[in-house]
Design a protein around this nucleic acid. Structure first.
Length: 264
DNA sequence: AACAATGTTCAGTC
DNA sequence: GGACTGAACATTGT
């Protein structure tokens, strides 16, 4: 699930339910998800401390703890859940707002237990998420919600890759994932196969506006799986503007759907 | 059973 | 070294 909108939702859950509480225990430390650190490293970092703030850069969450940083990445299917003292979850304490089904403890990959009985859980059924200590963020480009037009131009006017591959490149722009990329391209009427270096300034301008439109739609409608194109992104799906059957191909290594009539 | 899945990384090629 | 491609990673759902 997680692209920028889902990670922002996770950030809000943490900001609302998990800040400034003393951490008493750290549990369910999955060695694959929490690598390459030892369980003891996480305990030493966290126990007895509090989360001071939570920031987001692209799809990476940064939790400040006693001057250091705990990085959380949701991978391909992760979520963040805060359980109450009875171990229950209400909708606003689940970054998916219940859409990902009930929380299963067997999918907990890192749990921070607070002294009031509540617990912050990194839940990831697929284990492609990551928890890291003092993560390196230098490889991340400007956040998609913060990137300036000048930075965006620099990211899209050079190179020879398909433009979709560039939108997905976290070193160029951070936060865009496969669904937001398809939605952005469709809104801008640009083919995912179009080469970056060959884009006109007019097309880049449309992509900039469309990226914000796609993100804002997802942020206000419940996630990246919402949008104008996304619901039609399947076998036999048609363009919601012109009703032409959508094309499918792997672009930039990801499954891609677009309108061959409107997107050039 | 085989394949695709909202992501990242690494080996390999040009 | 840089740009780029494709496979691998772990697991679940179809």
């Amino acid at each position: 699930m997680p692209e920028l909108p889902e990670v922002e939702s996770a950030r809000l859950v943490i900001a609302l339910r998990a800040l400034h509480l003393p951490i008493s225990r750290v549990q369910a430390i999955d060695p694959y998800v929490c690598r390459p650190f030892a369980a003891e490293d996480f305990r030493r970092l966290l126990i007895g401390h509090r989360l001071d703030r939570v920031d987001r850069v692209g799809k990476l969450l940064l939790l400040s703890v006693g001057g250091r940083s705990l990085g959380l990445h949701l991978g391909m299917g992760g979520r963040v859940v805060v359980t109450d003292a009875a171990g229950h979850v209400d909708r606003e304490s689940d970054s998916t707002h219940g859409l990902a089904g009930p929380h299963r403890p067997q999918w907990d990959r890192l749990v921070l237990q607070f002294t009031d009985g509540t617990a912050l859980r990194l839940v990831d059924k697929r284990r492609l998420g990551r928890a890291t200590i003092d993560p390196d963020t230098t490889h991340l480009g400007p956040d998609a919600l913060q990137i300036t037009r000048t930075q965006f131009d620099a990211a899209l006017l050079t190179g020879h890759r398909p433009v979709k591959a560039r939108l997905l490149d976290q070193a160029s722009i951070s936060g865009i994932g496969n669904l937001v990329a398809d939605e952005t391209l469709w809104r801008a009427r640009v083919s995912p196969l179009h080469q970056t270096g060959a884009l006109t300034r007019r097309e880049v301008s449309a992509l900039y506006r469309s990226m914000h439109a796609a993100l804002n739609w997802a942020l206000t409608h419940g996630g990246s799986h919402t949008g104008r194109l996304i619901p039609h992104r399947h076998q036999g799906g048609r363009c919601p503007r012109c009703d032409r059957q959508l094309s499918y191909a792997r672009v930039g290594g990801r499954s891609s759907w677009w309108c061959p009539e409107e997107q050039r």
